[in-house]
Design a binder for these strands. Structure first.
Length: 485
RNA sequence: GGGCACGUAGGCUAACGGCAGGCCACCAGGUUCUCAGCCUGACAGCGAGGGUUCGAUUCCCUCCGUGCCUACCA
C-alpha cells in the first residue's frame, strides 16, 4: 500500500511555523516510503478563510522547500484539494449518515445551547450537548425544519464502552465513549465542520497516515466513530507534539514569532529553519545537529519522534542559521543577501564585503547594519567614541594625525596597511589597540567591525583618509559641537 | 471542573532493565587590533514517593507539575 499523507492548514492569517513543522514530518515520512505528500486547504470556516492567506501558505512552504505532490495549485488525481470546492460531497455524506441512523438533524438555537452549557457549568458538569433533538421524534424535528428553522447535522456518539486506538508516537490511547460529545458535522450554512470534512477527505484521498498536531488527540474518537459509521478503514494515527512558547504554552504570535514570513524577512535561511524544526522532536544518530532533508529522510521514523512538547528556542535557531550562513560559498551568500540590501549595491564591492561579514551575520537582515559604513560619506558618531577609556584627547589627536600621514604613504592593500599601522604603534610606543581603535572609529563610526586592515582596504584610500580628516576635525571642535561631517 | 497527553541540566535531545552522553545558552581561558568566528575547559539533569527486580531514567502504581481539548474555529 502506498503511503499517502497530508497537511490540512486552514488559510486564516499568516502562514504558521507549526504548519511547516507538521509538513516536514509528513513529507519526510511520505518520501521515505516512496509515497505522496498532499496539501489540502481546509477553508470550511467561511468567515476567517482568505485567498491571500492560502497564497501565503503556498509561498512559505515553497520557500522552505516543503513542496507537495498533490494540491490545489498543482492538482492531482484526488482533487479538488480545496474543501470549499467539495461542499456537496460533505452534504451527501452527512445526509447519508442521517439515513443510516448514525447522525441526526438538530434545530437547537445558539441561545438554547448556551443556556444548557451555563446550567451544566453551574452544576459542575462537563459542558456537552444534552441530546435534545436526538431524543425528539424525527417527525417533530422535521416539522420545525419545514417551518424554516435553521438546522445542523450531529453525529450520534454517546454510548457505553471505550474508544481505544494506537498512536504511533504515544502508544495506546483510551477514551470513554460517554466523554465524547455529539459533534456537529454539518453547520447551518450547509458547510462541514473540520471533523466531517477531514474524515471524508482523508478517506477519499486514500490517506494512510494522519500525522497531525497533538491538539487533535481529543477529537480522534469522533473521527474514529465516523470511520466506523461510514464503514471505512481508519488511517494510522500519529500525533506529533505542539511547538511551545518559552512558558510552555502552545506557540502563539503574542509570545513568539509564528509567521513563516517573519522568518523569511529576518533572513533565516530556509534550509536552516527546516533543520532547526527537525531538531524539535527528531534526532539523528551520533548526535548530529546539522543535516540535510535527504539525510533526515534516511534516518527518520515517526515512532522516533519525541512526544514531549519542545520549546521553540530562538537562540538555537540563530546558531543553526549561523552554521548554514558560514557554510555558504561567498558568491551564494552575496546572492542571498540581495533582498536584504545587497541588490542595490555595486556587485564588485559586495563581493569584497561578504567575506568580511560572513562570520558576523546572525541573520541575513544584519547585512544593512554590518555594512552601513561601507556606503555613503558622512558618519554619525560621538567624538567621545574616538577616545578610549585610558586615553586623552591629545593622545588620540596625535594618533589620528600620525595614522593619517602614514596611511597616505602606504600602498593600499591589507597586508601593507596592517604592517605600517603596527609599526606606527611601536614607533609611538603604544599598544596596537590604542592606535587601531581610534582609527577604526574614525573610518567606520563604530567600535566593533571586521579587522581594520581589511576594512580599510575595502573602504579605499580616498574615503578612509577623508574620514580620518573628519575625525580629526571632530576632535578639534568644541565638546558639544553638532555633527559636521 | 472533566477527559487526554507529556515530564532527562535554563532550552533541544541520546541511551536492549546494567558507568546518564551530545548540542544551544551561560561562565572561564586561548587565538586576536575590536566584534564575530574558531579552539579548549567548566557549570549543570533523570519532578516526588512507593512497588517489581541482583539492579529502574527505563516496567507498574500514586502523587505533583505542565500542556491540549472541552465552539455551528481549525
Amino acid at each position: 500500500m502506498t503511503v499517502r499523507v497530508r497537511i490540512a492548514p486552514s488559510p486564516t492569517g499568516d502562514p504558521h511555523v507549526g504548519t511547516a513543522y507538521v509538513a516536514l514530518f509528513n513529507r519526510t515520512w511520505a518520501h521515505k516510503n516512496g509515497g505522496q505528500f498532499l496539501l489540502r486547504i481546509e477553508d470550511t470556516d467561511r468567515v476567517r478563510s482568505t485567498k491571500e492567506s492560502e497564497k501565503m501558505i503556498f509561498d512559505s512552504l515553497g520557500w522552505l522547500g516543503l513542496t507537495w505532490d498533490e494540491g490545489p495549485d498543482i492538482g492531482g488525481p484526488f482533487g479538488p484539494y480545496r474543501q470549499s470546492e467539495r461542499v456537496e460531497t460533505y452534504l451527501k455524506h452527512a445526509t447519508g449518515l442521517v439515513e443510516k441512523g448514525a447522525a441526526y438533524y438538530c434545530t437547537c438555537t445558539a441561545d438554547r445551547l448556551e443556556a444548557v452549557r451555563k446550567a451544566q457549568a453551574a452544576a459542575k458538569l462537563a459542558p456537552r450537548y444534552d441530546g435534545h433533538c436526538r431524543n425528539l421524534p424525527a417527525t417533530e424535528v422535521r416539522k420545525q425544519i419545514d417551518a424554516g428553522a435553521p438546522w445542523v447535522i450531529r453525529l450520534k456518539v454517546a454510548s457505553d464502552g471505550e474508544c481505544r486506538f494506537k498512536d504511533v508516537v504515544r502508544g495506546e490511547v483510551v477514551f470513554a465513549w460517554d466523554q465524547i460529545d455529539d459533534q456537529i458535522l454539518l453547520k447551518s450554512d450547509g458547510w462541514p465542520t473540520y471533523h466531517l470534512a477531514n474524515v471524508v477527505d482523508d478517506h477519499l484521498m486514500e490517506i494512510t497516515h494522519v500525522i497531525r498536531a497533538e491538539e487533535w488527540i481529543s477529537s480522534t474518537p469522533k473521527h474514529i466513530k465516523l470511520y466506523e459509521v461510514f464503514g471505512w478503514e481508519p488511517p494510522v494515527w500519529c500525533h506529533v507534539p505542539l511547538l511551545r512558547n518559552k512558558d510552555r504554552t502552545k506557540i502563539s504570535k503574542r509570545k513568539n514569532p509564528t509567521s513563516l514570513r517573519w522568518y523569511e524577512e529576518q533572513g533565516y535561511l530556509p534550509e536552516a529553519l527546516v533543520n532547526f524544526l527537525a531538531l524539535m522532536g527528531f534526532s539523528m544518530p551520533e548526535n548530529r545537529e546539522i543535516f540535510t532533508p535527504a539525510e533526515m529522510q534516511e534516518h527518520f521514523h515517526i515512532d522516533r519522534i519525541n512526544a514531549g512538547g519542545p520549546v521553540f528556542d530562538m537562540e538555537k535557531l540563530d546558531w543553526v542559521n549561523g552554521q548554514y550562513i558560514r557554510k555558504l560559498p561567498a558568491e551564494e551568500l552575496a546572492r542571498r543577501l540581495g533582498p536584504f540590501g545587497a541588490a542595490g549595491h555595486d556587485p564588485a564591492l559586495v563581493a569584497r564585503i561578504v567575506p568580511l561579514i560572513q562570520d558576523r551575520l546572525r541573520v541575513l537582515s544584519d547585512y544593512k547594519d554590518l555594512t552601513a559604513f561601507f556606503f555613503g560619506d558622512a558618519l554619525a558618531y560621538e567624538a567621545a567614541t574616538l577616545v578610549g577609556k585610558k586615553q586623552t584627547v591629545p593622545d588620540v589627536q596625535g594618533h589620528l594625525r600620525a595614522a593619517r600621514e602614514t596611511l597616505a604613504a602606504t600602498p593600499w592593500d591589507a597586508a601593507a596597511l596592517e604592517t605600517r599601522l603596527k609599526e606606527l604603534a611601536a614607533t609611538r610606543n603604544v599598544k596596537v589597540g590604542e592606535l587601531f581603535m581610534p582609527v577604526r572609529v574614525a573610518v567606520t563610526g563604530r567600535t566593533a567591525t571586521p579587522p581594520l586592515d581589511r576594512t580599510l582596504e575595502v573602504l579605499g584610500r580616498e574615503r578612509s583618509l577623508a574620514r580620518l580628516d573628519a575625525a580629526i576635525a571632530k576632535l578639534a571642535a568644541p565638546a558639544k559641537a553638532p555633527e559636521t561631517p
